[in-house]
């Protein structure tokens, strides 16, 4: 668990604090996304966690230990770090790049080699083909996957990711995001992720922290923030399609009318979605089938009916009039 307590930072020569009294807790195994416009302090905040930036004030602890007491290089070797520009060492092969932290930790050579091969495979890269290449021979998407692999090399419990997917094209970005979510299901790392892209934040985050001019404007789950934006700034940040985003974050089961009896259950029509599917998926299917209702199932068992009217009313209730 990472905990920030009233953390502030003002850079020399600047009157405005870059980070202003931020208190924040990142739970074990969560993806916490720091989101906000450029200059809001999100990168500074992230870089304070591995002491690339030292706070002027406040305290940061990792698993209860104050990081100010730790030796910075030692601390950093236990925290994965991924940046937008990737920052692969151009004079080293991909395998050598991934082996960087294990090398600093003086792992035996064989253990490192096995780990590098495993990581490349995990990232859908062919160890035999990519391992011996140099960074300039990779595409942007491949380089960023190597960047993630390098950060994961020594299996750090914490990962700091600073706009890691911002420089790759949209198609690759979606693929990298999906891959991260897939990996996270098994890895359960504690991840701090910085982005200016609210869609990315909502997609990846278990917890969002909205920042503006160094201050925390709002924090909560994506659904919390979508349904109860704190102010106009958050509302604008969420964009014009807030209702649709809410439907992407809402499970079909929450808006369905549960079947009262077996008879109603038997009458269920042929179009189905799973209870845990987002409403957006249900909506998509309803539009494709040109129908106003769809059966919600748990596995093979129909449990309720989701109606177009219920969806409409839900979005209207939450965001109608607010925007």
């Amino acid at each position: 668990m990472i905990q920030l307590e009233q953390v502030s930072k003002t850079f020399r020569g600047s009157r405005q604090p870059a980070v202003d009294r931020i208190t924040l807790r990142v739970k074990q195994g969560d993806i916490c996304v720091l989101v906000g416009p450029s200059g809001c302090g999100k990168t500074t905040l992230l870089r304070m966690i591995n002491r690339l930036v030292e706070p002027d004030d406040g305290m940061i602890t990792v698993d209860g230990r104050s990081i100010a007491q730790m030796d910075p290089p030692t601390l950093r070797r236990t925290i994965g770090y991924v940046i937008q520009q990737v920052g692969l060492l151009p004079h080293r092969t991909i395998a050598q790049n991934i082996a960087l932290v294990p090398e600093l930790l003086k792992w035996p050579r064989e253990k490192t080699a096995r780990r590098v091969a495993a990581l490349l495979e995990m990232m859908d890269l062919d160890p035999g083909e990519v391992g011996h290449k140099y960074p300039h021979q990779l595409s942007g998407g491949q380089a960023q996957r190597v960047g993630v692999a390098r950060a994961l090399a020594a299996d750090p419990p914490i990962m700091l990711m600073d706009e890691p997917f911002a420089a790759v094209d949209p198609i690759v970005r979606v693929r990298l995001q999906d891959q991260l979510l897939r990996l996270q299901q098994t890895m359960q790392k504690t991840i701090c992720f910085v982005t200016h892209d609210i869609n990315e934040a909502i997609k990846l985050g278990d917890h969002l922290v909205v920042l503006k001019a160094g201050r925390m404007v709002q924090s909560g789950t994506p659904l919390d923030i979508l349904t109860q934006p704190e102010n106009d700034f958050v509302l604008r940040l969420l964009g014009d399609d807030r209702g649709v985003k809410i439907l992407d974050q809402t499970r079909a089961e929450t808006l369905m009318d549960p079947f009262a009896d077996a008879a109603a259950q038997a009458a269920a029509n042929g179009h189905r979605v799973q209870a845990i599917d987002p409403v957006k998926i249900a909506l998509e299917r309803m539009m494709l089938m040109n129908t106003d209702e769809i059966t919600v199932c748990e596995g093979a068992r129909p449990v309720g009916l989701l109606r177009w009217n219920a969806i409409k009313a839900h979005v209207h209730r939450i965001s109608g009039g607010a925007s």
Partner: peptide
């Protein structure tokens, strides 16, 4: 490239490294 140095520092390299 400063970003390469930054990445190295972030990985836990010392000044000499």
């Amino acid at each position: 490239d400063g970003t390469v140095v930054d990445a190295g520092k972030g990985m836990g390299m010392t000044g000499l490294q």
